[in-house]
Nucleic acid binder design. Structure first.
Lengths: 94, 94
DNA sequence: ACTTTAGTTCGATGATCATCGAACTAAGAA
DNA sequence: TTCTTAGTTCGATGATCATCGAACTAAAGT
């Protein structure tokens, strides 16, 4: 049996969700109820700028977050549409 | 901010779901509506016995599947309880 | 013109991953 | 008791991962 193309896509999203730091970033964005800058999010996690940038690129790539750039500042927000299906599963502690 | 223990658990489950072959195994079990042996599942995927065994151990470890052993044969089935929350997300093509 | 601020990109590193074949175990069949 | 069947465990391998600091870019502040 050949690998289903759709499974590859889904697996990709799950891979992005398979890192505790990224899950925490998602929750921070979710709780904020507003756009946050990379710096704001990065501050709360004990991670270097480059690492935070790396993670956000991954989240963006699969459409879990939105990005808005204003001058040199980058505003992050959660893309609710991508989450509504299974958000309760991993945000159930909120 | 310290890493949330619950996020580590969740990330672990997502990691198990982040492989296309494992997703396909899950779907095969789901569609079968009965227990299947490792061999039956492995046959449908072009993977060696050892690789299939490796994947099933991972699925079992996080509780996504159930196991029943009878003599040397191992019967696999999906653990629905673990899935009901977000099953529709990745089985939506069924 | 310099400096600070915000973020990206670039190696490098150590860790984990998926995969295989080969060797092993345990049980049923001949 | 020997042979087959069903699955596990064990290196080995090449790939991807998360992380960092350093160097870079681009814009704003002084």
């Amino acid at each position: 049996m050949k690998i289903d193309k759709k499974d590859i896509q889904r697996a990709e999203i799950f891979k992005v969700l398979s890192d505790p730091n990224r899950l925490q970033m998602i929750r921070i964005l979710y709780q904020a109820h507003r756009e946050l800058t990379c710096g704001e999010v990065g501050e709360k996690l004990d991670l270097s700028k480059s690492t935070v940038s790396y993670h956000f690129k991954k989240l963006r790539k699969v459409g879990l977050t939105n990005t808005r750039k204003e001058a040199q500042i980058k505003y992050l927000s959660i893309n609710m549409d991508a989450f509504t299906e299974f958000l309760p599963f991993f945000l159930d502690t909120l």
